[in-house]
Design a protein around this nucleic acid. Sequence first.
DNA 1: GAACATATGGCACTGAGTACCCTCTGTAAA
DNA 2: TTTACAGAGGGTACTCAGTGCCATATGTTC
Lengths: 278, 278
Amino acid sequence: MALSTLCKCIECHICGFRCYVPRMTEVRRRRKPAGEAPESEASQDASAGDVPKAPMREVLAESAFALFLERGFERTTVDDIVARAGVGRRSFFRYFPSKEDAVFPDHDRCLADMTAFLEAAGDAEPVGAVCDAAHLVMRMYAAKPEFSVQRYRLTREVPGLRTYELSVVRRYERTLAAYLRTRWNGAPDGALRAEVVAAAVVAAHNNALRTWLRTGGESDADAAVEHALATVREVWTGGRAPAGETDGDEVIVMVARKGAPLWRVVQQVESALTDERD
Amino acid sequence: MALSTLCKCIECHICGFRCYVPRMTEVRRRRKPAGEAPESEASQDASAGDVPKAPMREVLAESAFALFLERGFERTTVDDIVARAGVGRRSFFRYFPSKEDAVFPDHDRCLADMTAFLEAAGDAEPVGAVCDAAHLVMRMYAAKPEFSVQRYRLTREVPGLRTYELSVVRRYERTLAAYLRTRWNGAPDGALRAEVVAAAVVAAHNNALRTWLRTGGESDADAAVEHALATVREVWTGGRAPAGETDGDEVIVMVARKGAPLWRVVQQVESALTDERD
DNA sequence: GAACATATGGCACTGAGTACCCTCTGTAAA
DNA sequence: TTTACAGAGGGTACTCAGTGCCATATGTTC
């Protein structure tokens, strides 16, 4: 997509945010419809100096969030935000491509983490890998419980933010599906299975996330996600126990129902043999 | 959500579209962020006269779509649309709450159909019911193949339309999940399973839909969806085939030595299953 | 010191969407 | 018949998000 070539998101080592910093010479047509999450490129380190100057992106995000909580998202204008932050209006759009982006400043990094995680997953059991990857997202939320809970309440009430969040979730889903697709490349209906499993993982994760958010961020986030993902793991990996319990020279006896789809049988065989091998 | 109380969508018996017709006295604050699909209320019949006057909504939708194809979505303004349709600018927003809505004029009705279908499903097998419900969506697309294919190409290129479509898809998913939730009310993890299965069904459907759209709308849409949904049906309904295709409940017992090469095992499994199936 | 990149501010502009007010027409009640 | 009212449509001015362009610092490098 053209957007990705126009939008540089680099990580600020001071504020920890992945900063939206368009090169002025590169910006041509950066028009981005509302509700669309920007698709950032690979990360680069910020080449900032060692003086901890005021991190404008953080200041803007905090001003924006405070105002959204105070008077609501829609009744807060960008002018209000920059007035509170004490900067020029134009600067806001240098750091956030849209008003919605100021509410979700950390998904870009999380998505990059997920991509890196899956790249490093090697030939691990694919469904297990994407389930593990889903934990990264929950951990991002759990790292800032109060913020996450407040944002959840805000998002529930503002249709524009819900829509924006959908596009964010979709990016995670696509990332998981892309990984599964390469792992199941050549398998019958590999792409189909990849998308179905990715959607199931995301749905399970989001169910656990919402439950956790509704407890006010006080329950055990990781346990909630793992419980939810167990549904997916059991169904799509044949309900195997995770680690090698068998040893010795036994043979594998696999029982499958007659109507079971071939790919599922193959998957079970594969995972059983993989377990045996190490 | 407040929107649903402000947006009346009634079906026009002339043009067949579900028309967006706000009561002037009811409209208070109808502000709807871009990219958000309107959540319509239950349908009502239009009380239009029997004179087949020019159905403005259809005229607008056709003008809009033609212009979107000609010069692109973003380079078409609402002023362009109403100029081509020969009506006032204000009228556009009486029929479509946003520019995006003019591209998806038929989802409201389809969603209502799906809701009605599930209400009538009674105590049918729940996963089967939602799979059948998914067919309704595909049939809506298949009813106008050229339009669907053109819109698909348009949607792929316009981020704003993709985001809008996400919110539409989400409404289907929520409808399916709500049905499953009531059916599995009280069951352990009923809500979780409902959301996971709904997401899987939607993902499978969309995979088939995209495949069909990429063939130019010429392949067998229903068969494609059914093939994709088979993945979900088999996994989530205990592997039962939908109708009386299988008889007997035999199982296959496969025994393999631990050191056997994977390809050989797969080969044997495949041939065994193929033999059994016919 | 010249050339250049980066950060920020300012201003004018486009275009979606809204509020408010107007007219016209058909229908039902007085 | 007249009156009242609701619905359909038009028009105008407004708000606000987002963009393009330009100006101005402040380094940084050659």
